[in-house]
Write a protein that binds this DNA or RNA. Structure first.
Lengths: 185, 185, 185, 185
DNA sequence: GATGAATGAGAATTCATTCAT
DNA sequence: GATGAATGAATTCTCATTCAT
């Protein structure tokens, strides 16, 4: 009875699932039929439910790694940039890039469906504090207006990124740039 | 041949329908089941289909009046404000107010569902030109950066307003203010 | 209070209705939406229901006159033709012509929907006896096989005529000719 | 990867579905609500849609086997009968029997609903050529009139069989006999 | 009497979720 | 553990029929 082997299999399967979900989310949004994700992964639907009892669990799993990367970038940018505002601007750019690239993610962020609460939680817990630190530093340096809420700004950037890829006439990045410019003291 | 009386009834009913739809759109989004709207209005579902053959027709009807008001405000503000930028800022505030107040409208703007094409068209045809005039005037006066697209800005403001009312921690208006500040030359 | 005038109006209206129904039946079959018939007649749907409480009543009314003509032709043909079989053959041709011309009528004959009972009754009461007389005469003259049931033959011809106009590869008349030839002793 | 077991279940279920559909088609015609068929089969509606995505698929499946049998009988009869006309007559009897037995099938043949195109195709492709061969043989032997179209005759027989079982006063077989007699040179 | 707006039952179809194999 | 067949609730849309005006 070698449980290690099993776990290895299960993990491999889970990764296949995550990749498939990411791909389908990108194509059809996070509301995509479970069946489609299963088909993309080449597994049965039951397998998905075994690994991710609710859709939210799957979504969170899909994006956790990328959110983590984003969170870790905050302190690094703060250390390596020429100033707090520059760090802030670059982090927001990076965050926006992440959202725009992962089509559909920004839309999920907007949804207040209970099923997505886990995802919201992840953003609030991991990213909002990082952004708050950047804002505090920049405000402390007198580079931006004081009193800006990290959560609101995060949501604002997220909102601006929604639908970027589905409308060629819209350009989320230019709007984010405007927003960042507006932060200036 | 006294159809006038009939029409009075039908019009009253149509207004009831519009109010009900606006209310339900706010609560459940514009994808709300037709049955729910009918129930809210206290009419049969067939009545909705009689008045508004497609869902798009209903949505457009619900918001047409308010969009019209917004469109007419542009030239007036340009005339009465202290300068083009002030007019622009006030118009955007007004527009954002409209979107935030009419819960659910901003969300519709994002959707690229074919059923909402009529609504998108209304925004593009009526509001984008108004905003474009304001931008041109402000850019001509050297008050804002040049090269900002009316459509993109309209979508950006719309995006910022999405979900404002469903999340007490988010404040769309402050983000719009930031965006408007970012327009400054 | 001149009721004659009223009746004249009502009759005119009824005729308009019959014409419209005949036209719509031809185009869309006897299952056509009541609304379509009303529209074709240029009256409200309520008017149809006032004149013809059930759909069957309308159908019967539409075709009564033509059935009557057909019924009256039987004895005349028997008198004027060169022999009973010739009269029979010509009557069947005439009957088939009637059915083929009034698109949709043959189909109704097949239906055993209770709503069409009245129409069936009309056929059975008026035409079956006429055909029976023709069969009796021809059988009596030894020109056809004995024992053929008028009702069955009437239904057979009716069936052969169904769908004639909707399928260019089918030719009801040639089949009716075959059937009539098969009657020969 | 043992899909064989699964398939056994699915096949059993499919057969249940086919039987139920045949039964309901007989009772209520091929336009019967999907729900009714599902109820008769004792399965959910979704199960029907899984097995037969369109109604046409179900209808074709219901009747395919029997049509096949009929098609194969043509050459056999031609070989084993005392002459081409005898073979033709026996084949038509067999065909009529098939239609009369499978209540509702003749009615489907008449319909030109697009959804039934697949079934029509099956008849045209499989049975019309068989009948054409029989006709050619009989005409070649001088036993029947020349120039009779296989498709028209097939449709004629089909028409004669419609509604046989729903009207005790009608007897499709006797009419088919008449038609076959009428083929004689 | 006529009108046509309103009603609401009925039918098709989709998909999340369960569970027998 | 995995599979995918089965379920059935949910939703849309269409008309026959009624009834207030």
């Amino acid at each position: 009875m070698p449980p290690a082997r099993k776990r290895a299999d299960a993990q491999r399967n889970e990764q296949v699932l995550l990749d498939a979900a990411a791909s389908v989310f990108t194509t059809s949004g996070v509301d995509a039929p479970v069946r489609d994700i299963a088909a993309e992964a080449g597994v049965g639907m039951g397998t998905i439910y075994r690994h991710f009892p609710t859709r939210a669990d799957l979504i969170v799993a899909v994006y956790r790694h990328q959110i983590e990367t984003c969170a870790e970038a905050g302190p690094i940018l703060l250390r390596e940039s020429t100033g707090p505002y520059a760090a802030l601007a670059r982090w927001i750019d990076m965050f926006a890039d992440f959202l725009v690239t992962k089509h559909g993610l920004a839309e999920v962020l907007q949804s207040d469906t209970p099923g997505f609460a886990a995802l919201h939680g992840l953003f609030v817990e991991r990213l909002a504090p990082v952004l708050a630190d950047l804002l505090t530093a920049a405000a402390g340096a007198g580079e931006i207006k004081p009193g800006i809420q990290a959560y609101t700004l995060m949501r604002g950037v997220g909102n601006l990124c929604a639908g970027d890829s589905s409308d060629p006439r819209y350009d989320a990045r230019s709007m984010v740039t405007l927003l960042v410019a507006g932060l200036r003291a």
